[in-house]
């Protein structure tokens, strides 16, 4: 069970969340004025000076109104984030070089909509106001009252293996953009990164000694089994021309073929490639190819030996062992 992160709720609101789960972790929320908030403050100061100089009551009123508006905005910005429950979900594996997406489940248990909650992967540099470095991807969403929202924080994967998202900053500047309330969450989930599929697509020769063909029957070409009405797209080779010649319409002969081949991908098959990474990439490419051709395939690399199989899950197992190859995980 992954941890549940609760963004700090105001002290005197009944904490319904604490009792929910022992696995919860509280995170503090910080509030800072944004750059525009500082600009706003500067403008307010100018207004105040003007009001004092002209001893103008309405100018005083407007200045104080806007000043207290920013105070109230602090509360609203805080509320927009406070008490939000964040659950991590396991990210789906990606191939190296792709964007790994770390899903977060945002649970809004309040009666108000949470607007414009933004997630960004914190950079290691010092925290800056409104940082938006070009590398990081921003994810923003609204969460309706009493609803869940699923968002994905994208992180570029560079190497195979396990990719950690690290710290993700969640912030909001709603409603007026004068203040930002923010918190950082430490994402514990790691994303499995497969090697990048590279290399030639043609599969190595099938190991004929093990080809038995009893595993299942596919539509093939061996045994005749009956007729069927012609449908557009059927192979012309299979049309029952004899029946057609009797003017009884177009029929297609049907056959059943046997045999799927067992393909064992071995470390030897890629030994001609210079380094480990390109070997893994080649194997990865072949595995995907084998799966798309509905072959029965297995994997034999040092320390890992997987029996032949087929299907999404099997492919995942094979790719995962490639991804973890040689890494101490």
């Amino acid at each position: 069970m992954p941890e549940t992160i609760v963004l700090e709720q105001f002290p005197f609101s009944a904490s319904r969340l604490a009792a929910d789960n022992k696995n919860t972790r509280k995170q503090r929320i910080y509030i800072m004025p944004t750059r525009h908030g500082l600009l706003f403050g500067l403008m307010l100061f100018a207004m105040l000076i003007g009001a004092i100089n002209y001893n103008n009551s309405m100018a005083y009123i407007l200045t104080f109104l806007l000043g207290s508006l920013s105070l109230v905005t602090i509360l609203h910005t805080y509320r927009n984030l406070a008490g939000m429950v964040i659950n991590e979900a396991p990210p789906l594996p990606v191939f190296s070089g792709e964007l790994a997406k770390f899903p977060l489940i945002l649970d809004n248990r309040n009666r108000h909509i949470r607007f414009a909650i933004t997630f960004i992967r914190s950079s290691k540099k010092k925290w800056r106001l409104n940082q938006t470095s070009t590398n990081s991807h921003i994810t923003t969403c609204n969460i309706d009252q009493n609803q869940l929202e699923r968002i994905e924080v994208p992180v570029r994967s560079l190497h195979r293996g396990l990719l950690k998202a690290g710290r993700i900053k969640v912030y909001t500047i709603f409603p007026l953009g004068l203040f930002t309330a923010w918190s950082t969450i430490d994402v514990k989930q790691a994303c499995l990164v497969y090697p990048k599929p590279e290399g030639q697509k043609s599969l190595p020769p099938v190991d004929l000694t093990e080809s038995t063909g009893i595993q299942g029957k596919y539509s093939g070409t061996d045994d005749f089994t009956g007729f069927r009405n012609y449908q557009a797209g059927d192979s012309i080779k299979n049309i029952a021309w004899k029946v057609y010649a009797q003017q009884k319409g177009l029929f297609v002969k049907r056959f059943i073929g046997s045999g799927s081949d067992k393909l064992h991908l071995r470390w030897n098959d890629v030994s001609h490639l210079p380094d480990i990474e390109s070997r893994l990439s080649q194997l990865c490419c072949w595995l995907i190819e084998a799966e798309s051709q509905s072959l029965q395939y297995g994997l034999n690399i040092p320390e890992v030996s997987l029996d032949t199989g087929h299907g999404e899950k099997h492919l995942h197992l094979c790719l995962a062992s490639l991804a973890k190859y040689g890494l101490k995980i």
Binding site: I52, N53, Y54, N55, S57, Y60, I61, F64, L65, L66, G67, S68, L69, L71, V72, T73, H76, P175, L176
Partner: peptide, 22 residues
């Protein structure tokens, strides 16, 4: 937002130290 700012605004208006003259 504006209505919620009014109470604080009133306090400031009444109590903010006023200076006579420009």
């Amino acid at each position: 937002l504006l209505l919620q700012s009014i109470p604080v605004m009133l306090i400031l208006f009444v109590l903010f130290p006023r200076i006579s003259g420009p």
